[in-house]
Design a protein around this nucleic acid. Structure first.
Length: 574
RNA sequence: GAUUCAGUAGCUCAGCCGGUAGAGCACAUCCCUUUUAAGGAUGGGGUCCUGGGUUCGAAUCCCAGCUGAAUCACCA
């Protein structure tokens, strides 16, 4: 990296780094730094009358500096919060040599540097709990300038708010917007709460393949990759359902997995190509049992995060207190679209769509038509948690037929805030029916449905050995976190959401320019004026190049002797 | 994929009926012994996203592109 690529401030910081080394101070020391408390504990518990916290050792990042002659204040931020540090020249440097304060502290420390300090807690004249620093140690020098966010009386100044930069450089976001951490702490708590509940029931947490030869268990386009040693294609899983059910065949009564799934589809506020789903399968249960289990689970999660079942989401309050409303899909359509679709055939359903002004495709079968009607007319109304039950059979190839109506399946989805949160079935364990359903999917696929499922013969074989009756449920952890933390976008509940790659500027070494005949003094000027590669220079108009570099020479007052246009032509044509 | 908006200093943004590029914070030098969005003085720092066009002259107007955001559409 050339010095010209650095901002002035970055150059100053690199200079400080050198100066520190010259003073015998290693800016990146090997040894650790013992800490014995946190900013949070001191601020919460320090009491001058008790004379506690008189020997503290803490470490963190410098987030603000106020220097005034012999005394200075810094703000130190650790994982838990910020506390003010008080530096006094004669305390830091008791002898005659004031270098440590005047040079090291005042000149070579910057906002963003990580330091360790030892000292005692006290209260300043203005009444702020602070640390009186007796010693400090540089633990890591920061060479980049942090965006500085200031705050007074709850008003934030110069917030670091550009979403692109926040997501691309999440580490900076977490430093300067520490409240972002809360979302992720809550996310971990949500998962912990669920895991604890499952374990109490005696269910086993398992891991199943992410690289799968057949991407099964859902309808979605997969990511494809290749295994060299076996010379076969492999898919990143779109779901783990079929593997978990194999384990139920194998004799476990309950298995669950927090799984990263991958789908090669669009990205938006509620979709990221990789996302987390929790799936759980419990033997000898049906979907009614699973609804109650799901209600209890969500109630526990809401209580763990909010201490109440009432959760604020946007301008709404969502109440996770069981029991949740249960509504069949047909009744939902009756209620919100005002149409009774009971017993309708495909043609009649098409007419309903037309009447309701719902766009449909020729390839849609009955199931998809009903799903469209439901999606268009009902979803947005289902704000409070609502189980939508008994889906048409065409949409649910892994779900058991309804015990009373063979056109339907024993499936429920839980809708919250107008969005699907959970999906669950009484699982299909009839191997012959399962094979038929897979074959129907194959027909849909041949008809052009890109998301129709593949046939997994090994899974059918497993069912042929016998799977106990079983209920299964999947829940989107990212969406659950969005609801529980009141975040409108999936990007805000993922540390590192998928982004387009950053544009890289191609660049040749200066030596390559010199090889083609460009005098050394002009190389950086060319690079800085957009001719970053030799080939870019070769493709340029010689007159333009001449004008640009002569212009730069004049503008930057470099005092170089301008080359003749003929010389420039030779660089380019050589 | 469609529409709208945005891209100017390290950060937040102003300038946009064309005429030498601005502020606050941050940074540098100096002053200041308890300050707190510390303060005072001085100073440095910009391919005004990129490429074309109009023009004597473009950050500003026009066209195209890139990147991002919002809304909508699509997607179990």
């Amino acid at each position: 990296m050339s010095v010209l690529d650095l901002s002035e401030q970055e150059i100053f910081r690199r200079q400080s780094l050198e100066d520190l080394r010259k003073l015998g101070i290693e800016p990146y020391p090997q040894e650790g730094f013992e800490i014995n408390t946190t900013t949070e504990e001191i601020l919460a518990n320090f009491d001058p009358e008790k004379k506690n916290y008189q020997n503290v050792s803490i470490a963190g990042r410098i987030m603000a500096r106020r220097i005034m002659g012999k005394a200075s204040f810094c703000e130190l931020m650790d994982e838990k919060g910020r506390i003010q540090l008080y530096f006094n020249r004669d305390e830091i440097c008791p002898g005659d040599d004031k270098t440590l304060y005047n040079e090291v502290f005042k000149k070579h420390l910057d906002i963003g540097d990580i330091i360790g300090v030892k000292g005692y807690a006290f209260i300043t004249q203005v009444g702020e709990k602070s640390i009186f620093v007796k010693e400090f140690k540089i633990l890591s020098k920061s060479l980049r300038v942090l965006p500085i966010v200031k705050e007074k009386d709850g008003v934030v100044y110069d917030a670091f708010s550009d979403p692109e930069q926040r997501y691309r450089q999440r580490y900076v976001d977490l430093i300067v917007n520490p409240h972002i951490k809360d979302v992720f702490i809550k996310r971990a708590k949500i998962i912990e709460t669920m895991r604890q509940m499952f374990n109490e029931h005696g269910y086993l947490e398992v891991e199943t393949p992410i690289l799968q030869p057949i991407p099964g268990g859902a309808a979605a386009r997969p990511f494809i990759t290749h295994h060299n040693a076996l010379n076969i294609p492999l898919y990143l899983r779109i779901a783990n359902e079929l593997y978990l059910k194999r384990l139920i065949v194998g004799g476990f009564n309950g298995v669950y997995e927090f799984a990263k799934d991958f789908r090669n589809e669009g990205m938006d506020r509620t979709h990221n190509p990789e996302f987390t789903v929790m799936e759980i399968y419990v033997a000898y249960k049906d979907y009614f049992w699973m609804m109650e289990f799901t209600e209890k689970m969500l109630q526990k999660v809401a209580l763990a995060i909010h201490g109440t079942t009432e959760v604020p989401v946007g301008d709404k309050i969502i109440n996770f207190k069981p029991p949740f409303r249960r509504l069949t899909m047909i009744d939902a359509i009756k209620e919100y679209a005002g149409v009774d679709i009971t017993g309708m055939n495909e043609q009649q359903l098409r007419e309903v769509c037309k009447k309701l002004d719902i766009e449909v495709d020729e390839t849609f079968g009955k199931g998809k038509l009903i799903d469209e009607i439901f999606g268009e007319t009902c979803e947005e109304h289902l704000i409070q948690p609502t189980f939508i039950i008994d889906y048409p059979i065409e949409m649910s190839p892994l779900c058991k037929r309804h015990r009373k109506n063979p056109e339907l399946t024993e499936r429920f989805e839980l809708l919250v805030n107008g969005k699907e949160l959970c999906n669950a079935y009484t699982e299909l364990n009839d191997p012959i029916d399962q094979l038929e359903r897979f074959k129907e999917q194959l027909r849909l696929s041949e008809k052009g449905d890109e998301e129709a499922m593949f046939i997994d013969y090994d899974f059918v074989r497993a069912l042929e050995y016998g799977m106990p009756p079983c209920a299964g449920m999947g829940i989107g952890i990212d969406r659950l976190t969005m609801i529980m933390t009141n975040q409108p976008s999936i990007q805000d509940v993922l540390f590192f959401p998928q982004m387009r790659p950053e544009k890289k500027i191609e660049r040749d070494e200066p030596a390559k320019f010199i090889e083609t005949g460009v005098p050394q003094e002009w190389v950086e000027i060319l690079i800085n004026n957009g001719f970053t590669t030799v080939s870019a220079l070769k493709n340029a108009n010689p007159n333009k190049v001449h004008q640009v570099i002569c212009g730069a020479n004049k503008k930057l007052k470099l005092g170089l002797k301008n080359p003749t246009p003929e010389e420039v032509r030779q660089w380019i044509e050589s």
